[in-house]
Write a protein that binds this DNA or RNA. Structure first.
Lengths: 225, 225
DNA sequence: ACCTGAACACCGTTCAAGT
DNA sequence: ACCTGAACACCGTTCAAGT
């Protein structure tokens, strides 16, 4: 057997250990040395399981997406729209679960089996909604982009919050401080700051997905199978 | 004066040098040591200009966004829809210009002056389109997310291509190879692969933005100022 | 087949010291 | 005020060697 390690730990053990470190120390804190140490291994032992750190990270993305219930997309007890919603919400939740998961996703193409299954399910749902196949694929890509984009905005905001509390003292003073506080030049941004759009409220996310779906299927196709 | 270095190089020189390295070696290749060396400086000299590597990267994001012409959003010779299009296309182009720019954006909140100006311009355009302020802010966030999401998908795909050509030999064989090639389980994905949705065709991007705008402003507001 | 130890060529950041 | 040199505590990855 090609991938078969016989002892000590398994590939999923390594991935799980990596996730634990990701959760605690963020993306920059994940090192193959650290993961190895957490498992009582030498760094070089990791290279028996994964050919590179990047391969490890891609496996992490797969485990992340493995957590979303793609099968639920085929459950025809609810309409296609509800099922797209469920899928989008699930992916976003998984991405929000671990700090730095967003950078992980950007580290390589989403061509793992779970990623492919997810994309396939989305296209199928839009076909079900009455779209021609090509448009269904475009719509699926748009939904993927939207979920990823919202997650990116959330990750960016969270990265800033971590940096601020982490530094505590006036680390970024001279460079960024005085220039960026002139907020009165952005009245509309200020007036709508209470919406906390980047913070990741579920209802705001659902609103965005709904507007996107409105545009994707047009007003004609209101058919909720 | 607080930020005033008197000699040798300026902050923008450092940012520019960092971009050159980003372009050539990707995100992982950018180091404060490397940037310093490119300018004939010692690594520690960089800390006279930026308090940390993260501060440097945030300055890079600002320079990236400085390249999009936000003023064009106020040019009322074209409709609000065209101007949203122009803004979205410009941001995406800037993000696509440098490999690894996406990770850069995720490294901290988008609260620099150029980022704020861009967000403000988007909200204003949606107010112009007839949306109430709160919905305009939500719409602006959706457009930002869409652009970022598409860029993230493109970055992920590009990261994969680099890894493949870089490794050349069977680096990821045992781990990912045999499991991921069973593409016949994803017929719809295969059937629409020719669309190259992740590759970043301009017309596909425009289609997505258009559908999103359709959903955001509804069918009632077709008013093109 | 799996794992260790030592080594190579790197990192970000701090701090005392120079001019 | 700006910059250097040396140092600290890390990195990913390779390779010979052990069992």
């Amino acid at each position: 057997m090609r991938p078969g390690p016989r002892r000590s730990v398994s590939q999923v053990d390594i991935v799980d250990a990596a996730f634990e470190i990701l959760e605690q120390k963020g993306f920059a804190g994940v090192s193959v040395r650290g993961v190895a140490a957490a498992l009582g291994l030498t760094p070089t032992a990791i290279y028996t399981y994964f050919p590179s750190k990047n391969a490890l990270m891609r496996a992490m993305v797969e485990e992340l997406l493995a957590g979303v219930d793609v099968a639920a997309a085929s459950d025809s007890s609810s309409g296609w729209r509800d099922r797209v919603h469920a899928l989008a919400l699930a992916v976003r939740a998984r991405l929000a679960e671990h700090a730095g998961a967003m950078v992980l996703v950007t580290s390589g193409p989403l061509d793992g089996p779970h990623a492919l299954a997810l994309g396939e399910a989305l296209i199928r749902l839009f076909v079900e909604a009455g779209l021609p196949v090509d448009d269904a694929a475009r719509a699926a890509a748009a939904v993927k982009a939207h979920v990823l984009g919202v997650s990116a905005l959330e990750a960016a905001e969270r990265a800033g919050r971590v940096a601020e509390t982490g530094a505590a003292e006036g680390a970024g003073r001279a460079t960024s401080g005085p220039l960026w506080t002139d907020a009165s030049r952005y009245p509309l941004t200020e007036a709508t700051a209470h919406l906390a759009l980047a913070a990741g409220a579920d209802d705001e996310f659902a609103w965005g997905i709904d507007r996107l779906l409105d545009g994707l299927v047009g007003t004609a196709a209101v058919g909720n199978t």
